[in-house]
Design a protein around this nucleic acid. Structure first.
Lengths: 334, 334
DNA sequence: TTGAAAGCGTTACCAT
DNA sequence: ATGGTAACGCTTTCAA
């Protein structure tokens, strides 16, 4: 029993086309019939049927956001990306359909082919990502949040994780550190070649090598035990380590706690730089100098690119540059 | 240039109705024409237009999830609810449209009135929630995840937060504690009367009183300073406190850390019980006995209720019961 | 300034 | 077992 244009037309004593034109404004309408129609619309609580409209408009104003659900990704961080995309989409009058990637690409293919969504945003892109090839075959525009090795000509944006890793390394090099450890995400994360994990680590290691420093890269597994083990391993292979680069939002607090338990003072005995959200860095004990992840900006950017694609423009890939915020957790090596 | 039934019909040399019936299976079709049609469908990559379909079907298979974005809610925890709903919806073949509540109810009213979604799930319900009255006027079924004082006859499900608070209190009472503190969420959270915050605290305080214990309820603000201040306040007003009930996922790790800094041992000097997700409790240092929040179950339940409503049934409100998992952070008061 | 009618892509009823 | 066609709710062309 939802009301239709026909109902409104009857109620206002005009034709359906008049109602439609009042709504779209695509034709001059005399002030008094316009008012009459608007009154009827209000009285009947009429809203044009979205599906019917989408047939002619060839658009639904809905974007799909494909979100993989990985146990070892901090929900916190992932939520920021979702929020960034959601806010940006809503600001442009678009709605967001959330799709867990576990469903495979099938449902996404259905949604695009059936014109249920106008475009697709995909996050958590891997370096060698089998999904990208599939995404490239969809009948609707796609924007990747992340950079696959072969983008299949898809639009993509990213944070410059390599530069972020390098920035941390440079920062520690400038402070005179000689032996540095890179504490990254879990082995699983590297095994699936999550773009951010691989690139940040490579960026850091390359710069550390270029600056002639000794470096160890370790993975850190979930939970407190993962942290304990990682640090144990570290002090076996490189006991003289004086600085850590940490890119593992789940582990960061536990790493700091463990250092404290081991009576290793930050930054007196150990400098620490992290890749993590601002507030996590600020809230850590002690506060940690960090390169922050611009989740909101990335979301906004992704939506903008998708809109450009829908406009028929071919947007340039964008790489957001990192900035480091010193918070006193790293100090000059005396 | 998406293909339509007409294209398929032409390609297969049959009528449009035949194509439709092949798709729906609502009519016996000879095996050979069926195969021919299916071949054409596959070859053309045809998918029925979702919008057109939604006209006749009077359904889109899309649910809206309204998600308030509060600074002081742990994204982590909120994400679990979203995931719970998302998984449950997908398991039933439904898609999920994510809607930030900041947009007000207007967009939601539009989506429901325009038949863009089949139903609505609303989370983060407050005790006195002005949105509930609006939700009750929508033209599509609604399920509240949370319990307002006046549900306006809307379907609602919830975790029994009062019982959860009470369970923590009973547990500590049985261990012989006499002076207990309840460390809750931020003042803002209580100011807006978030159902979970208010009910858990009341449940705990009532039980503590009934068991003749002294109790202090404190709010804990965001960040490490919030924790420091709260504990300071606590030891001023009730220095002999021997047990804490913590319901503040953001603060829990910092509370444990602060206790450690103050040389207060858990559980020797201070017993701690928390309301928080399982893995956070397990990963804390030390592990914390907790009553866990069944986010996934709640999401599933909410989706089931919405499906029942769409079936025309009037589902019974459900309250999930709490269980406490001892992890050694609380001990008998000697 | 307005109305009638065709057409968008589906489905389902009425035919054959 | 299959085809023609009306109907869903909307927009837009064509006519007046």
């Amino acid at each position: 029993m939802p009301t239709s244009v026909t109902d409104v037309a009857r109620h206002a004593g005009v034709s359906v086309s008049t109602v439609s034109y009042v709504l779209s404004g695509n034709r001059p309408i005399s002030e008094k019939t316009k008012q009459r129609v608007l009154a009827s619309i209000a009285e009947l609580g009429f809203q044009p049927h979205a599906g019917a409209r989408s047939i002619r408009a060839r658009a639904t104003n809905i974007f799909a956001l494909v979100m993989p659900i990985e146990r070892d990704v901090r929900a916190d961080v992932q939520m920021r990306f979702v929020l960034g995309v959601l806010r940006a989409a809503r600001a442009k009058g678009k709605n967001l359909l959330l799709l867990p990637a576990e469903d495979g690409m099938d449902e996404l293919a259905r949604l695009t082919a059936s014109s249920a969504v106008d475009g697709v945003l995909a996050m958590e892109i891997r370096v060698h990502d089998p999904r990208v090839a599939t995404l490239a075959t969809l009948s609707k525009p796609v924007v990747l949040i992340g950079t696959p090795e072969d983008p299949h000509r898809l639009a993509h944006i990213d944070f410059d994780f390599a530069a972020a890793g390098a920035l941390c390394a440079e920062y520690l090099a400038d402070l005179g550190h000689q032996q540095v450890a890179y504490l990254g995400q879990s082995q699983d994360t590297f095994a699936r070649e999550a773009g951010y994990a691989v690139r940040a680590r490579n960026g850091a290691l390359q710069t550390l090598a270029a600056r002639g420093m000794r470096a160890q890269a370790l993975t850190v597994e979930l939970g407190r035990s993962g942290v304990t083990e990682a640090l144990e391993r570290l002090f076996q292979v490189q006991p003289e380590t004086t600085a850590l680069i940490v890119y593992n939002e789940l582990a960061l607090p536990n790493i700091l706690m463990r250092l404290n338990e081991l009576d290793i003072r930050v930054p007196a005995d150990m400098s620490v730089v992290a890749l993590c959200p601002e507030d996590q860095a600020a809230d850590a004990a002690p506060s940690v100098s960090n390169v922050s992840l611009p989740a909101i900006e990335l979301g906004t950017l992704a939506v903008e690119q998708l809109l450009e694609l829908l406009d028929g423009t071919r947007p340039e890939p964008v790489l957001l540059s990192p900035t480091l915020t010193p918070r006193g957790s790293a100090t000059r090596r005396s």
